[in-house]
Write a protein that binds this DNA or RNA. Structure first.
Ligand SMILES: O=c1ccn([C@H]2C[C@H](O)[C@@H](COP(=O)(O)OP(=O)(O)OP(=O)(O)O)O2)c(=O)[nH]1
Ligand SMILES: [Mg+2]
Length: 513
DNA sequence: GATCAGAGATT
DNA sequence: AATCTC
DNA sequence: GATC
């Protein structure tokens, strides 16, 4: 079909509810439409499907829209979302001579509304798929009631719904005998990741919790009953897991992955220093490849470095290379400032066979020595001199005391490489801390991130507060803000922190959640 | 309807 | 203050 | 997306 009228490039919304508005605005970004407010003069206005032409016109009169705009039903966007591409808008245009029966117009466009047909007059039983999907970035929910065949459950086969606190349990070792539900976990992980890069943190967390529940399940899951018995898995996630078991796939994930905006966001998310807002903007500006970014995008200093080493940074580091890098840093540090205590943390301390980066915690042996500035700077300089460090990403020493820097902690994020031909550039994080914070920092920097968050959430529940600086009790919170910071507890060792929280001690390798 | 951790550095 | 990162 |  050849369209004489080109698709709108700029639209605005009239009387669309908050929830749906958010969804539509996201869709607009995705389809390259810009959304403006009433005030400017634009000729395309999207109106809620309940409005007929007359009431829409009335509403327009009392606002500051341009004189003769084209009215389009929001169903246009709803259908476009479903079809995964921006559809022609013709059939959705609202005309003056078609009063009430909004739905009759729909009929021509495509199959999506077939079922609603006639009730009386202008019944608008808009299908809820978009608005009720409780989701933003996705279109989801052809939520047909799946006919679940309930298989008989073998007694004693149910997954134990273990405690709420992940940090109280050892991470189950998948490396030894593999996880029986690997396929499911893999799919859900991908979902979680995609939700994260599309700025849906809450949902990403929900998937991670479900993943952890699955990891703890030591036998292959077979029945729908079993699935629902898992903590943090209810209707929606249970359906998805069941679908994976039955079909070995997940339609929603495939649909997600095939969206070019999601794929592009994923690509851009691999640039160190570019987060959800930046990648979203880049996409909106029409960039699609890393070369687009190199040539045309506005990049911060760190993003330039992230782009320069895109492949290197996204490669895992074999454990033995981390060991060699650690050795270089330790030796150099000992030459420059004798008496430093250093521990390589992160995934390395958790004994992972490969690591995403190198995380090194640094302090003085015995307390008191607040002039950390006399340590970080010389060490960094020396590491640069031997051409081990190649670039700075975050450097406390460079930015001379930024806004009210009361913290004694100092952070250096940079780039290093072994002095051997063929060595890749690696991300290295050095954190300098006062000795009295050693245990809490060690705990923090060892992670995993999920483990930390679980433990911190537990602390909060106990009216305590846990960070890399310390563990406090008697914390009084009023909503979000702390009324009372509480008092710092004496935490000489990691074990002591577990004790305060009534947790069994877990060695680093058991914190790999 | 709020929460999902808490903090440092850059922009 | 928003954004990104650990 | 689950939980309280
Ligand atoms: O959001 C985060 C990220 C990290 N960390 C802590 C735990 C983590 O173990 C450590 C180092 O971070 P990194 O990103 O290097 O994670 P990792 O556990 O070392 O994994 P990777 O192998 O990807 O480096 O910092 C957090 O507390 N919160
Ligand atoms: Mg790491």
């Amino acid at each position: 079909m050849t369209d004489d009228i080109s698709l709108p490039t700029t639209v605005s919304f009239l009387r669309v509810g908050k929830r749906r508005l958010e969804i539509f605005q996201k869709a607009c970004i995705r389809f390259g439409l810009s959304v403006v407010n009433h005030t400017s003069h634009n000729s395309f206005i999207l109106i809620d499907d309940e409005l007929d032409f007359i009431s829409a016109s009335k509403a327009l009169k009392s606002s500051s829209f341009s004189s003769s705009p084209i009215l389009i039903r929001t169903q246009w966007l709803s259908d476009s979302i479903k079809q995964n591409k921006l559809l022609p808008h013709h059939s959705y245009i609202l005309h003056a001579n078609l009063p009430q029966s909004v739905s009759s117009v729909t009929e021509t466009c495509n199959s999506s509304n077939r079922n609603e047909t006639t009730t009386q007059g202008s019944s608008i039983k808009r299908e809820r798929s978009i608005s009720s999907s409780a989701s933003d970035t996705d279109e989801e929910s052809n939520s047909k009631k799946r006919n679940i065949e309930i298989q008989p459950i073998q007694p004693g086969d149910l997954p134990k719904t273990t405690g709420i606190w992940l940090c109280s349990e050892a991470s189950s070792s998948t490396s030894i005998n593999g996880n029986p539900n690997e396929k499911i976990i893999e799919k859900l992980k991908e979902m979680s990741k995609l939700y994260l890069i599309t700025n849906d943190k809450g949902r990403s967390i929900a998937y991670q919790k479900a993943i952890e529940a699955l990891k703890r399940c030591t036998h292959p899951i077979r029945s729908y009953e079993e699935i629902k018995a898992l903590p943090y898995v209810k209707q929606s996630l249970a359906d998805k897991i069941w679908e994976i078991i039955r079909t070995n796939g997940l339609v929603k994930l495939s649909a997600f992955q095939s969206r070019d905006d999601v794929a592009t966001l994923g690509l851009f998310a691999g640039v160190w220093g570019a987060g959800t807002e930046t990648t979203k903007q880049w996409f909106a500006q029409g960039f699609r490849t890393l070369d687009d970014l190199r040539n045309r995008a506005r990049l911060t200093r760190t993003q330039q470095i992230g782009l320069k080493y895109y492949d290197d940074f996204n490669a895992r580091i074999p454990r033995d290379e981390v060991t060699r890098i650690e050795t270089i840093v330790k030796q150099t540090a000992n030459e420059v400032v004798p008496g430093l205590v250093m521990e390589t943390c992160g995934s390395y301390r958790r004994l992972k066979p490969s690591c995403g980066d190198i995380d090194i915690l640094i302090t003085f042996k015995d307390g008191k020595r607040h002039l950390h500035e006399s340590v970080l700077s010389p060490l960094i300089d020396k590491l640069k001199a031997i051409e081990f460090l190649t670039d700075d990403l975050i450097n406390h020493s460079e930015t001379s005391s930024s806004t009210g820097n009361t913290s004694e902690q100092m952070t250096y994020f940079g780039v290093c490489r072994l002095l051997e031909p063929g060595s890749l550039h690696r991300r290295i994080d050095l954190i300098f801390i006062p000795a009295n914070e050693w245990a809490c920092s060690l705990l923090y920097f060892t992670g995993s991130a999920m483990f930390n968050r679980s433990m911190r959430r537990l602390a909060r529940r106990l009216n305590m507060s846990l960070s890399q600086h310390g563990l406090y009790n008697g914390v009084v919170r009023k909503g979000v803000e702390k009324i009372h910071t509480g008092q710092a507890l004496h935490t000489p060792t990691e074990e002591s922190i577990f004790q305060y929280l009534n947790l069994p001690y877990r060695p680093p390798e058991d914190r790999d959640h």
